[in-house]
Design a protein around this nucleic acid. Structure first.
Length: 127
RNA sequence: GAUGCAAGUUGGGCAAUUGCUGCUCUAUAACGAGGAACGUUAUGAGUAGAGGAAAGUCCGAACUCCAGAGAACAGGGUGCCGGAUAACGUCCGGGGGUCAAAUGCAUAAGCGUUUGAUUAAGGAAAGUGCAGCAGAAAAAAUACCGUCCCGCUUAUGCGGGGUAAGGGUGAAAAGGCAGGGUAAGAGCCUACCGCUUUGUUAGUAAUAACAAGGGUCCAGUAAUGGAGUUCCGACUAGUCGGAAUCAGUGUAAACCCCACCUGGAGCAAGGUCAUGUAUAAGACUACCCGUCUAUUUUAGACGGGUCAAAGUUGUUCGCUUUGUAUGUCUUGGGUAGACCGCUAGAGUUUGAUAGCAAUAUCAAAUCGAGAUAAAUAAUUGCCGUCCUGAUUAUUCGGGACACAGAAUUCGGCUUAUAGACUCGCAUCAUCA
RNA sequence: CGGAACGUGGCGCAGUCCGGUUAGCGUACUUGACUGGGGGUCAAGUGGUCGCGGGUUCAAAUCCCGCCGUUCCGA
């Protein structure tokens, strides 16, 4: 597996997985409450982490949402080794909480990455 | 050269690193009984990878399904004329209306020419509805003030009648204006303008130009009466009665009339395979006639008719299916995985020909997204454009670079949009 | 992606079909009266770009066109 890669196997694709995360997952927020993450810890013993990025239609128009999703993906991709020590299957969905297009018409990686790292560290401590 | 307007084109570039999706490979590895071949997965290499609006979903089509998708009505849409097109509410060309400016003619009303803007613009002399408030009167209307005549009265004025020129109301008051006429007035009469009818010419047509006709005639101060012409109705069939004889205004994005178009749903359409639930629930299960077979009653098959149910997604007709078969129809439940549909097409560019143009025909060349909790990217550096701070004939900083993201595919419309370029027009400045 | 409905005082609605009278109702809010005070009742009052922009009309919340926003449905 690539060190900085993010292939199809590392993403949540099935509808059942999504409903499991949203129905019985836990929510944590980043410092400043810009972002939030919903996660679900499985008990099958398989060592893999799956992620997804969910952005509401109310946050902004399609081009803005597309850019935010790519930045979130990039931030996770560069920092996913933080979660490499756990042993069960883990499902995580990242979403913006207070972030929207009206407040932040221009998005940059340096703004988003710090919050994602913060979220990942909190996640590791919760396991 | 600057500024403004209008039209069109374009929608930052190069490199490095790290990634994603599709396709290709005599590539490497693992797995599948596994040597070859094949398949799957991973890795590697190569290659391609958002738009002019991809948007809004406002129109039009292609394509697919609905067990005919037929007819009539209803409903919906379009609306100057002609052309283009697969089609359109789109585009092109032509003509008309309205408004503004300039200018010419005219006493005026008005008419002509040029330029610009705008125009959902068939029919209001087929019918119906509506026109609040104000105003005397609002649609075959009407006399409030005024004005004229007659009667009464000392007079102020009162009563009767005429009058739409003037005042006033209103968005709108029943052609305009000048002269004649009159008791006063009025198309009451006349000229001009407008309106309208018919004809000719030009044009495929909308329409335009030109010509002719249309406000009747007689009597009367007037009201009015008579005559003529046209239309309608009645009957006793050639008389009687009624209406008209220069606009009965506006509204059809009110009903409506006319012409043309129109079945419904939409790629989450639909098809194949896999997985999987519960043969779950409900409705219909009628009658007559004829023929044939077996024959005691009777039963079965075929054909026809009636009836019932369901479908035909508004109604009717018509049509189709079913009516004792482990049948048909309706409702409900379950699956959310894979593949096909899925991208080469009414495609793009160039040239020639036809055409005023939209566009068409022919020839040559060319094209490379196809995802599905959804790829097409992120960061950095340099260059480019703009803003700004310091320094000052040069350099160093800082910031910004639009609107916006394919989801079956096309043709349009509408809306959003920083900057750059091209052509044309107008104004100003400078030089020759 | 496709298809539908709705937008009127702070809140919930009527009026829109078929244009005209003052845009109305409940609740909330303000003031006053009744009460020793509160609650409650009664009376009076405030508050509206009828989502936004054009058009038709003498006149538009209402008719027509274009935008904006919200909600719902579809394997």
């Amino acid at each position: 597996m690539k060190r900085f890669g993010l292939s199809k196997k590392e993403r949540i694709k099935k509808k059942n997985d999504f409903s499991r995360v949203y129905n019985s997952g836990k929510i944590i927020y980043s410092n400043g409450r810009k972002l939030k993450a919903i996660f679900y810890l499985g008990e099958d013993g398989e060592k893999n982490v799956k992620v997804a990025f969910g952005i509401s239609k109310k946050a902004g128009n399609a081009a803005w949402r597309n850019r935010l999703r790519r930045l979130l993906k990039e931030s996770y991709r560069l920092n996913k080794e933080i979660l490499s020590e756990q042993n069960n299957s883990l499902y995580v969905v990242f979403s913006p909480n207070t972030l929207n297009k009206k407040k932040h018409p221009k998005l940059y990686l340096r703004d988003v990455e710090a919050d994602v790292v913060d979220l990942l560290k909190k996640l590791r401590n919760n396991l």
